[in-house]
Design a protein around this nucleic acid. Structure first.
Lengths: 192, 192
DNA sequence: TTGGCCTTGGGACAAATGTCCTTTTAATTA
DNA sequence: TAATTAAAAGGACATTTGTCCCAAGGCCAA
């Protein structure tokens, strides 16, 4: 659920030490909106520390969380390739330290640095791989199963995140999430 | 719903004429399974003509269709970057003509041909962009709206594809699809 | 041409989820 | 500390969707 990419962050740390490219450092307070859906920006971000949520808001104001981004994940990179507006909003969950690449730098790196190029390519491929089974799983299994799976993978998250976010991630209403949680508790207290 | 990528096919056509890389041509009969989920393959495919469906099958045997691939779309490429097993099965819908790249050729092209590299990068980015809003939309709107949207975008598909596929694409059962279709028809016959 | 098989369509009921609201609890600020 | 706001929990009901059937029609192979 919280995605990470260590190889990427390690490589960028190295790059920065060399200092041949402009890579800025930035810190955002918790709950800061960093990218807003349907806008245009001129930087790509890479998370050095902290967690961000990446989500789409529909016309009715419902949020649908795409993924939680952790160390080494980038955002704002899709717009490099398509020159379209952002599809997702990105907000910091905890305090967030990021590297930010001006588009020009990012483009230069893609061209001139084969390792960087490869890392970006792999990061894109991983995002695709990750999304495919997720939505299929959420469709095919009841809410309870989705919660259990989540709690197993990221026990800490359930305590850090507001219920609303968890519900939005699973793609259900808060009410339904609560109902499922209650039933789960009953089953655990009174097994079978 | 049927995705395409013309720039890509145009460029590969050009490449093939030059003949410096091994790019084979292959034809599959309708309803042929080309890739099977959780296997390993040694080629990447690019569609020259026809339509394929790309889907995940879960433990209960339910299919969930990821996308329909048309001209210029590639499949089997994710495994180049992560060396993992395929996540999707791919089956031809109509007769399918493809170019197939041995992994070695594909890798060589990525390294040596910047245009190819860029096209692949963009193709990956587009797949991500495309998936995000789709699942969010399907969650937030009733089946009827999803059908209407689909009929508007691809009126031809509704006639070519079996109902089961359409249902699997929207992520509902055939029963629910039928129900929605019936209600739609009633509304049209007897408006308001 | 007939029997099997698959697709389509739909009835009846069960289960899951959403909507709307109210109450409770915790957190924040004046 | 009191007052205000926000988050969490849940009751009651409506709606949606799924499950399990069965029947009708088309298509193919024997």
């Amino acid at each position: 659920m919280i995605r990470t990419n260590h190889d990427f962050i390690i490589y960028i740390d190295k790059l920065r030490k060399k200092g041949s490219y402009e890579i800025d450092e930035q810190v955002f307070a918790p709950k800061t909106m960093i990218l807003k859906q349907d806008r245009r920006y001129s930087s790509v971000y890479l998370i050095r520390e902290g967690i961000a949520k990446c989500y789409i808001t529909d016309e009715n104001g419902k949020e649908f969380i795409q993924e939680f981004l952790g160390q080494g994940m980038e955002f704002g990179e899709l717009e490099i390739f398509s020159n379209k507006l952002t599809i997702c909003s990105v907000t910091s969950v905890s305090e967030l330290k990021v590297y930010s690449f001006p588009h020009s730098t990012y483009r230069a790196l893609l061209k001139e640095d084969p390792t960087f190029n490869g890392l970006v390519m792999k990061a894109l491929a991983d995002k695709i791989r990750y999304k495919a089974p997720r939505h299929s799983y959420q469709h095919s299994y009841p809410i309870e199963d989705n919660i259990l799976r989540l709690q197993k993978l990221f026990p800490e998250l359930t305590e850090v995140l507001p219920k609303k976010d968890i519900a939005n991630y699973i793609g259900v209403t808060t009410r339904s999430l609560n109902r499922a949680l209650k039933e789960l508790k009953q089953k655990q207290d009174n097994p079978k």
